[in-house]
Amino acid sequence: MDFLRPASWEEALAAKAEHPTAVPIAGGTDVMVEINFDHRRPEYLLDLNRVGDLYEWEVGEDSVRLGASVPYTTIMERLRAELPGLALASHTVASPQIRNRGGVGGNLGTASPAGDAHPALLAAGAEVEVESVRGSRRIPIDAFYTGVKRNALAADELIKYVHIDKADGPQQFSKVGTRNAMVIAVCAFGLALHPSTRTVRTGIGSAAPTPVRAKAAEEFLNAALEEGGFWDNGKIITPSVAKQFAELCSGACNPIDDVRGTASYRRHAVGVMARRTLTWAWESYRGTAARSEGAA
């Protein structure tokens, strides 16, 4: 095993080009466990801790450019207003110690369906900026996950930033685990209201081979909200709409039975979380709408 220690982004890209099998390591949450337990013996480890760009973030007009290694703790504490869904998801990642070192780049690189950031990224709308010595490109989050623990990265590419739309409305994230902290998701659900486009987006974790959106549910809800004039009148969403949305979210799952839970429980729980997160987000939207009306 060789340990590559690039001091800059350019050096990191060059190293990855020279050794495409090199395994990037930043927070170490996944890679070190595999090494400690003898599940993996990569030829090269590519340490990204010294690449400063990956630890920076920039809040722009419409979106946040989030360095791949910005720790979850920082996202929770510093980006709660701009990225509320991701901040909630970050708070459920493992333990304080791991949140202090792990970042979204690790979740994306591993592309496990259980990664906590995925549902929030899917719901918010994000693009993953990847780069190699050949150049850089932005992959829409919907096209990023290509299979079980597989993503759209080429062998010589590294994840640099994630561009996430700034929240234009309430966002929620919910995750089921068998204990109250430090737990891998049995399943998870992210939801974002986008009042500017009058759309709702979703993300489901751990209930299909890859993180997925519940597109049929989104389409149904978008239509129902439009039809009922909900975005304008700020009424409470009718229980039947919430129920059907929940059922469609369950239907978007394609889960398995494993040691963490049964497939049928995952489907059930995603439905419950979908209904609850929609209710919370919508309540918050109504509250905000009421307040801004009052101010006007």
């Binding site: 909630l88 459920t92 919910s174 995750k175 109250n180 902290a181 737990v183 419950v272 609850r276 919370w280």
Partner: peptide
Amino acid sequence: LPGGLSNTTHGEG
């Protein structure tokens, strides 16, 4: 609450 930090309920159920 049940679910803890995972934000699964605000009292519902």
